[in-house]
Design a protein around this nucleic acid. Structure first.
Length: 246
DNA sequence: AAGTGGCGCAACCGCCTGATT
DNA sequence: AAATCAGGCGGTTGCGCCACT
């Protein structure tokens, strides 16, 4: 079965939004709300746009509570931790960052944060016996996926060789501490804490994610643990980094 | 000053999911 | 129960800007 398109693509405008279109959309939503029907909204508002396009424009740019500008270190920590825990579920990650959109978080990860993290991993490779000085700890999502699927995907997305992704037992105790400011803001109802442990060897690295979370009615807690083992050379090669140790 | 390559971001595409008929 | 639809989501693309040569 072929799905009908959500709008008549021949008769809708595409590409960047003009200030006039923005104003029309904002005025309409301020006056009438979205009405729970994005498909009908552009016609009612007098816009020659696809409903999906209107929705995206409003949610990602025009909403009054959108936070524009650079991400803070705290936000970096949250994104990194959640990415390693649940994978590329940007909407879930964004929901933990007030004022940020999934598109924003996704763009930030893909263009900046991933590279920043990789550079830190590079520095780990060049100082093999030191503890990895990268700290990621934050509140995690209540919708944490107990299966390893998303972590495997996360590892794969980061360029970690899939075949080396093995949930298992930590190999060291170089535990990384959570920044106090992050623990203080952990006020979600089922907030687990996550403390990655990273150990390094001459040519490989292990990242252990331990997620302890209490969400059951009797207050008991469960611990979920995963070990990401990856090979430096293939990882650095994937990301186009020079091997500085050779 | 012109050309070029990289980066960042807004927007689009297509699939999935859940609600409704 | 099946079909249909709209909303939501993640992946990808395209374009403008900027730094560098």
């Amino acid at each position: 079965m072929v799905r009908a398109p959500c709008c008549d693509k021949a008769n809708v405008k595409r590409g960047p939004w003009s200030p006039e279109e923005d104003a029309t959309l904002v005025n309409y939503i301020n006056k009438h709300g979205t009405g729970g029907n994005w498909i009908a909204l552009p016609r009612k508002a007098g816009l020659k746009r696809c409903g999906k396009s209107c929705r995206l424009r409003w949610l990602n740019y025009l909403r009054p509570d959108i936070k524009h500008g650079g991400f803070t270190e705290e936000e970096d920590h949250v994104i990194c931790t959640l990415f390693f825990t649940i994978g590329s579920r940007w909407s879930v990650i964004a929901s933990r960052l007030p004022g940020r959109t999934d598109n924003d978080v996704k763009n930030y990860w893909n263009t900046k944060l991933k590279k920043k993290l990789m550079k830190q991993l590079v520095s780990l490779k060049t100082v093999p016996e030191s503890n990895f000085d990268y700290q990621v700890c934050a509140q995690n999502s209540a919708s944490i996926d107990p299966e390893t699927k998303n972590r495997e995907y996360a590892a794969n997305s980061m360029g970690f060789p899939k075949q080396n992704f093995n949930p298992g037992i930590p190999t060291s105790n170089s535990s990384l501490l959570c920044p106090p400011s992050l623990t203080e803001v952990s006020d979600f109802s089922h907030v687990p804490s996550s403390t990655p442990e990273v150990s390094s060897h001459s040519d490989s690295c292990s990242v252990v994610m331990k997620s302890e979370y209490s969400g059951s009615a009797n207050g008991s807690s469960e611990q979920d643990q995963v070990l990401l083992d990856f090979d430096f050379d293939s990882m650095l090669n994937d990301f186009g980094f020079q091997d500085q140790s050779s």
